[in-house]
Design a binder for these strands. Structure first.
Length: 305
DNA sequence: CTAGGATCCTGTCAGC
DNA sequence: TGCTGACAGGATCCTA
């Protein structure tokens, strides 16, 4: 699901395409996916707070979009049925979010929840298989007071190791992984980048926060910045599926991930097999050799295997 | 206050 | 083939 780098990728791409265009029509195909009243206005800015995207209009309203697990935004510059074949041939697709065939499928389709149309007849589709994501209309002036936005922590680039260390140690008995997934602790990491960051910093995902040292905190923060910087630079790991040389589909994620979805494959550092387990209900990938679990981290009620 | 689990929803895949 | 349960790149709500 889209994490910070994917949402930033969408923000940059959409900025090129829809700023200064007028949103003229909103079609809501799933009531649950759209909160508030549809509105009409010119797009003047696109911002991001953590994993939330904000589209500001010139009428004092903003669209807050959260993709959650399976949301996608697919911009299509081609026009609708009335459009000529010539302009269709020149159509542009810009898609990001949860990777799926929807990026190239005919739209709208079964998973399309909201359709936003602009004055030049281009279209932004909000697709979301599981309906966890949403678009919400609210006054621009109130965006930063929104409960979700308001409690977001700083992003890794703006946070010091001291700040993160203090926050981690407020949850001494929690495992490190679910703690860094908490957007009020540090903002932007999701399941992929949490695993990747912990791997890079050589920290076992089940380490208790109380055992994380200042040095490890600094390494973790740097790792988080690094993996997300790399992903943003390459257009986000979920930007699209790509077609491999043999004609089969691949996922950009496979190209840069070191551990995520790599269980059974050799660790890039030590060649030990990457393992997959479950930590706090989330699939978790790590190298059992590079990422050591200290004796003091062992938990009761957990049967070893 | 923290910590853990259930929950929202649809689709896909492994195993029988 | 059909059924079943597990699982899924997020966040919130409820309970102890």
């Amino acid at each position: 699901m889209p994490e910070l780098p994917e949402v930033e990728t969408i923000r940059r791409g959409l900025s090129q395409f829809i700023i200064k265009k007028k949103l003229v029509k909103t079609t809501v195909l799933c009531d649950k996916s759209f909160l508030g009243e549809p509105t009409i206005g010119v797009v003047i800015n696109i911002r991001r707070f953590g994993k939330a995207l904000i589209i500001d209009l010139d009428n004092g309203k903003s669209l807050m979009i959260h993709l959650r697990m399976t949301g996608q935004l697919i911009y299509d510059s081609s026009c609708h049925a009335t459009k000529s074949a010539r302009s269709k041939a020149r159509s542009t697709r810009y898609a990001a979010g949860h990777p799926s065939d929807n990026f190239t499928a005919t739209l709208p389709n079964k998973q399309t929840r909201v359709v936003l149309e602009f004055n030049d007849q281009s279209t932004l589709y909000f697709n979301d298989q599981r309906k966890f994501g949403f678009i919400k209309v609210l006054p621009t002036a109130e965006v930063e007071q929104d409960p979700f936005i308001k409690k977001l922590a700083k992003e890794p680039w703006n946070m010091t190791a001291n700040e993160l260390y203090a926050k981690l140690h407020r949850h001494p008995n929690s495992a490190i992984k679910p703690t860094i997934l908490d957007q009020t602790i540090v903002c932007g990491l999701g399941n992929i980048y949490a695993d990747e960051s912990l791997f890079t910093a050589c920290i076992h995902p089940e380490r208790k926060c109380s055992t994380i040292t200042m040095e490890e905190t600094a390494a973790l923060l740097e790792a988080a910045r690094d993996v997300m910087d790399k992903s943003i630079a390459s257009g986000g790991s979920t930007m699209a599926t790509y077609v491999k040389a043999d004609g089969t589909k691949g996922d950009y994620l496979d190209l840069f991930a070191q551990v995520f979805h790599k269980d059974g494959q050799p660790c890039p550092r030590c060649h030990t097999k990457i393992e997959k387990t479950k930590v706090a209900g989330r699939g978790t990938h790590f190298c059992p050799h590079c990422q050591i679990l200290h004796a003091s981290d062992s938990r009761q009620g957990k049967e070893g295997k």
